[in-house]
């Protein structure tokens, strides 16, 4: 039955795509994707390819990460304050495999992501008993324990200690354009999957659990199983992001990969863009990275975090759904005006 369903979907896909592109959101998305693909070929300037483009790559990695958090928290309502667990584990596995086992980066990234899924399972099961803020604090405690274990000098033979793993081979490619394209592919695939999942039956079930767990339970849904699925799926994408980040940086270390800052990055970016919108995560991540970049270029590097805190307060205080919705509405108004509607 499921097979038929999929076959039907595949058959309908071209028509679906055509009508989707004609919609406002579809057209805009397509435009963004095309611009992103075209971007690296616009210039050979080293400052552009090795500095500016690298910031784009970073923003795309964090987009995937923030979207994975949004899937778990926005769609399924399981608040996580320790998303760095998955991010860090995948990064460590990936770096270890490349540096110590000579794996090609491709395979290492996938194994890292699978490792993160495994952790999603391990953490998901005990955390199922927890709800709301308890879950948030439970995941936070979990990530702190991991951070401290990885930091310990006395465990450095097993967990590599405070200096982590570093190796010049931990990279997707030494050409930033190639790296950019590969990460862009990861991002597109991840976003399509996350958005499709959230629209599917599975996503509807997750949303029903988020909105009213008791009635979801009463209507015959095995909430426990679906929550574990949500954890694992979210961990998969967080893991992809974490492994890509490890290759982007070329090294892993406890604070840089398991730190509370990383968890909060996901929360900040996703909520800046707008919770439950998924696409908002990308906007939030790009906004964050490029605000930082322009402040540094403007010579205000020590004020970066201060200004960011201010913006966060203002956005959360005055725009409940982040910046994505208002921006989209403005663009749509403008679009309608241009078309004379």
């Amino acid at each position: 039955m499921l097979k038929n369903e999929i076959e039907e979907k595949v058959k309908q896909f071209p028509t679906y795509l055509k009508s989707w592109v004609k919609t406002f959101l579809g057209g805009l998305t397509l435009f963004c994707i095309i611009s992103l693909i075209a971007l690296p070929f616009l210039s050979q300037n080293q400052n552009f390819t090795h500095v500016f483009l690298r910031q784009f790559t970073l923003a795309m990695i964090f987009s995937i990460f923030a979207a994975s958090w949004d899937l778990l928290t926005g769609i399924s309502g399981q608040i996580s304050f320790g998303h760095a667990i998955f991010f860090g584990i995948a990064g460590y596995i990936c770096a270890y495999l490349i540096s110590y086992q000579n794996f090609p980066p491709w395979i290492a990234i996938f194994i890292g992501a699978i490792g993160a899924v495994f952790f999603g399972l391990i953490i998901g099961i005990p955390c199922l008993r927890l709800r709301g803020p308890y879950l948030a604090l439970g995941t936070l405690a979990f990530s702190l324990v991991l951070l401290k274990l990885f930091l310990m000098g006395s465990l450095s033979d097993v967990l590599f200690g405070s200096e982590g793993i570093s190796d010049y081979r931990i990279q997707i490619s030494d050409n930033p354009v190639v790296e950019y394209i590969i990460i862009l592919m990861f991002m597109i695939v991840s976003f399509i999957t996350i958005i499709q999942v959230s629209k599917s039956k599975f996503g509807t079930i997750l949303k029903s659990i988020r909105d009213d767990e008791v009635s979801a339970d009463a209507s015959g849904i095995n909430t426990t199983r679906f929550k574990v699925y949500a954890f694992m799926l979210s961990a998969l994408f967080a893991g992809i992001a974490g492994a890509c980040y490890a290759t982007y940086v070329g090294a892993v270390n406890p604070t840089g990969n398991f730190g509370a800052t990383i968890s909060f990055y996901a929360i900040l970016m996703a909520s800046l863009g707008g919770l439950t919108t998924i696409r908002g995560s990308a906007l939030g991540a790009f906004f964050f990275i490029f605000l930082e970049y322009s402040l540094i270029v403007a010579g205000a590097e020590i004020y970066v975090n201060l200004i960011f805190a201010l913006i966060l307060i203002v956005v959360v205080r005055f725009s409940e759904h982040g910046i994505l919705k208002p921006i989209l509405e403005r663009i749509k108004d403008l679009w309608d005006l241009l078309l004379g509607r």
């Binding site: 080293q46 400052n47 090795h50 500095v51 690298r54 910031q55 970073l58 405070s162 200096e163 982590g164 570093s166 980040y245 982007y248 940086v249 070329g250 090294a251 270390n253 604070t255 840089g256 990969n257 730190g259 509370a260 800052t261 990383i262 970049y293 540094i296």
Partner: peptide, 30 residues
């Protein structure tokens, strides 16, 4: 609360944007 990618970005600006011939610095090993 180290963010490793910021150090990378700084080094990239030194090398590709400012085209330095020599680098001097470093404090935190990781």
């Amino acid at each position: 609360q180290l963010v490793t990618s910021r150090g990378i970005a700084a080094a990239e600006r030194l090398v590709y944007n400012k085209k330095v011939q020599f680098g001097v610095g470093g404090f935190r090993s990781e």
